[in-house]
Write a protein that binds this DNA or RNA. Structure first.
Lengths: 215, 215
DNA sequence: CCAAAAGTGTTAGTGATACACCCATGT
DNA sequence: ACATGGGTGTATCACTAACACTTTTGG
């Protein structure tokens, strides 16, 4: 993919990966080593191979650039306006993902100088139209977290209810009521108590939970 | 676009256009005049030009193939699996649209033998993966019609409340309660009474309404 | 015994659902 | 007068939102 022709389409797949670290919503970005937008931050992603599916391309690029793998991706809608990439006509298919931050070992790669978790509310300027893609992804995330079980992807295997509530609050950027939150979870019947408890500081220890399987 | 190369991407835009005719949910299909899938029905659409935006491509193809224009399109998520088009690697961006059936004069074109409204529940076999695209579009439509005002696109300029309710019932494929339906509309405050009434058969004439502007 | 987070129920409000009769018209 | 679809209100249910105190621990 060294030179670009102006008379054909190129297809990229990008990954919008969210996590929570230090009580903040973070997003995985790489610093571009090569033009265009060299030195700017961008979503991890790259050109889809001619013989791989879109989602496969997103996963492959994500792993190559950041080391993140085994992650569940959800397709978002394409961005393909003329002029969004100075090299030529590039249509990108973004994918949304969540991951428990602690699990991840980030590393750099040839195209990507370094992979970094950036706070969503203090973003650097992004390459291409990646800011728009990201905003669209966040809207989707907020919708999904209130209507599906994707939240489990951002949690470690075991967690306390307070930790889970914190995750919701950080993603939705608003406070939730503790009793209502717990009541709702009880009704949903998607958590199971784990044997242990979590002690942290001088107070009553918290019950550990994990997500049940399936649906 | 006469010959295809196996080592590059092609990008198409398809339109999933719904309407209601004869109390049935219909979708606009064309019969393909050229291979692949010659003679099969397909969504109207085609190759996006290198210098036009995706939505523009969808509109242009739709007009060329069916005569339908001035229609509001909503981008859906891309379909781009390897092998979905026997000619080569083709990623398609589908767009969802609604239109009042009476407004439309359909015509044929060079690539499309004839443009036809087909009943959604008695579909012929479709070309490519268009059935999947269509199913995805219908899910979106059902969601949107319950959460936005897109319904106004499928109605003529003036209509009765019963006609509007029929449209909802046909799209959602379920009966709605008349009083609740009307109460909800009143609360939403998106309709305005028009001067006339509609007489049809031997019963009390119905008030005509239209949608208010904006939002 | 104090500080700190864990845990737990009840009430009020809001929106969704279920339901039946009278009205205006043409024949 | 009757057949046909137009038009209207109320009561129940389900879900959401608001709200405060007791428990368990470490220091």
């Amino acid at each position: 993919m060294a030179e670009f022709r102006k008379d054909r389409f190129y297809v990229t797949a990008d990954a919008v990966v969210f996590t929570i670290l230090n009580k903040e919503l973070k997003i995985l970005l790489i610093k571009r080593k090569i033009p265009p937008f060299k030195g700017k931050f961008a979503l991890p992603g790259g050109f889809v191979h001619i013989n791989e599916n879109l989602e496969h391309g997103a996963k492959r690029e994500l792993e190559e650039e950041t080391g993140v793998k085994n992650i569940l991706l959800k397709k978002l809608h394409a961005f393909g306006n003329v002029g969004r990439d100075p090299r030529g006509r590039v249509v990108t298919i973004p994918f949304l993902a969540l991951i428990a931050g602690e699990k991840v070992k980030l590393h750099a790669s040839t195209d990507a100088e370094l992979a970094k978790w950036q706070s969503f509310y203090r973003l650097p300027e992004l390459a291409f139209d990646h800011k728009k893609i990201l905003d669209n992804a966040l809207s989707h995330l907020r919708f999904e977290i209130q209507n599906t079980n994707i939240a489990f992807q951002i949690m470690p295997a075991e967690f306390t209810l307070t930790e889970l509530q914190n995750a919701y609050e950080i993603i939705l950027d608003k406070k939730l009521d503790k009793r209502n939150f717990r009541k709702k979870l009880k009704e949903l019947n998607i958590l199971k108590k784990m044997p242990g408890t979590k002690m942290e500081g001088a107070h009553r220890p918290a019950q550990l939970y994990s997500f049940k399987k399936a649906k």
